[in-house]
């Protein structure tokens, strides 16, 4: 029984590792300019965690195999180095490992989250609400008009609560149901929630940020590959959470300009 158990542990450990090594299921290809440190950090961590996983499971299996055999007369032995040796090993090996992961991870995080957007980044506002995203482009004047929550009426397609009769800056704002951005252009995404906690997750773009009702945040990113991607909500927001999504189209600058013109005409 012990031997079968030991073999089972090793088989499970190896079977578990195969899809990881083969990348059967893996992060989708990166289409952002900031994603490389994340992907590298992921591979580093996978290598270290994977080795720890295999080493620990295999050691466990070997000891189960070896020490479950009756060995009459043989005294109990202690692991060479004893508990202190293991504690020191844990501090040295795992300690260095986690400090290194922590430091490099913090650097990757800081490069994304602690850098300001460049001044010429293109501002786009995204509003999350049960259960859809809507986007707002500032129009030719480059200014977003103020939001009036009391004017929000999805029934009239006033998703943001704009007052186009009184607010000059709102008059040329362009509200869309899908997000289009020009390729290789930095986007400054202003995040606003009209009701609950939501999230903005685009796996390919290596972007993930929650919306906080009452607290408008912003993130910035640059997409470097033309294509159509999905923006999904990852913060449980009610019965339609699974279907809260929008499409992100990364286009050439020309395609984007004509797309924006078409959208402006539909307002």
């Amino acid at each position: 029984m012990a031997k079968i158990f030991a073999v089972t542990i090793i088989v499970i450990a190896i079977l578990s590792a195969i899809p990881i090594v083969r990348h059967t299921w893996w992060l989708p290809p990166d289409v952002s300019t900031h994603g490389q440190p994340i992907d590298e950090q992921m591979s580093e961590t996978m290598a270290e965690a994977g080795l720890s996983f295999l080493a620990a499971q295999i050691l466990l299996a070997i000891f189960i195999w070896k020490y479950s055999k009756p060995r009459p007369g043989e005294k109990i032995k202690n692991f060479p180095g004893g508990a202190m040796g293991l504690v020191i090993a844990a501090f040295l090996l795992v300690g260095t490992e986690v400090l290194a992961l922590g430091a490099f991870g913090a650097k990757a995080w800081a490069s994304i989250y602690l850098t300001p957007p460049s001044p010429d980044a293109m501002p786009i506002q995204v509003q999350a609400g049960q259960f859809a995203f809507y986007f707002r482009y500032p129009g030719p004047d480059g200014k977003f008009g103020p939001l009036h929550p009391d004017l929000i009426s999805e029934a009239n397609e006033n998703f943001f609560g704009l007052d186009t009769t009184h607010d000059a800056a709102s008059k040329d704002d362009i509200v869309t149901a899908e997000m289009a951005i020009p390729v290789n252009r930095e986007i400054h995404l202003l995040m606003h929630s009209k009701d609950l906690g939501h999230s903005f997750y685009v796996p390919e773009l290596r972007v993930h940020q929650d919306f906080v009702p009452g607290l408008d945040l912003s993130i910035h990113f640059t997409a470097n590959k033309i294509g159509k991607y999905e923006i999904v909500c990852t913060q449980l927001c009610g019965l339609g959470h699974y279907n809260m999504k929008a499409y992100l189209e990364v286009m050439s600058q020309e395609d984007f300009d004509s797309w924006l013109k078409r959208q402006a005409a539909l307002q």
């Binding site: 609400g129 049960q130 259960f131 859809a132 999805e154 029934a155 009610g238 019965l239 279907n243």
Partner: peptide
């Protein structure tokens, strides 16, 4: 009484 679909916010 207004009726809406929240999954499709335009439905009204």
């Amino acid at each position: 009484i207004e009726v809406k679909c929240n999954i499709h916010p335009w439905m009204h």
